[in-house]
Amino acid sequence: MNIFRLAGDMTHLFSVLVLLLKIHTIKSCAGISLKTQELYALVFTTRYLDIFTDFISLYNTVMKLIFLGSSFSIVWYIRRHKIVRRSYDKDQDTFRHYFLVIPCLVLAVFINHKFTFKEVMWTFSLYLEAVAILPQLVLLQRTRNIDNLTGQYVFLLGAYRALYILNWIYRHFTEPHYVHWITWIAGVVQTLLYADFFYYYFQSWKNNEKLQLPA
């Protein structure tokens, strides 16, 4: 475990907790894309299939349970909670899941490290995670208003993957056998998708004005 990975995991943990706390305290999910949250629940489910078969460390297992629990709770809140669901903007959050799920599945079947169920599922989760933020970014551009908690949430999500890239670079140089190009590519694509959001986030932060994404 190196500092980049720990910082990445903490940033990721913080992002889902910020979101869960926001929804739980103000009982609103305005500006949040349910599609993205459902895709993340799918990412964690297909990524952590080995949670009960391969024990890596207590930290690893606890974090997996937290990510699974928080992502499913967020989906539950937006779908089922009698107050929160009223603030869900379903006419704006229209991104089709299968536009992302199908291509990632097909890609994972053809491009993977090993053609086994677990490995294909794991690769699928990597590809899906790279694009899962798209419905959220589309929703932000449509609704144009970004409350700062949502902005912080997306920012932290992007930052976590950028820290993971530093972790992969660090491990590449310190652990010679550790090179997984699929992980690299998916991680870089994911971070690039956030790049334009980062640009506008920093612009608004620097000019101390409300975050506006171009239409």
Binding site: R5, H12, D50, D54, I56, N60, W122, Y164, N167, H177
Partner: peptide
Amino acid sequence: EEDLETKDEL
């Protein structure tokens, strides 16, 4: 061993 290596990350 290689497999475990990949999977030690979240």
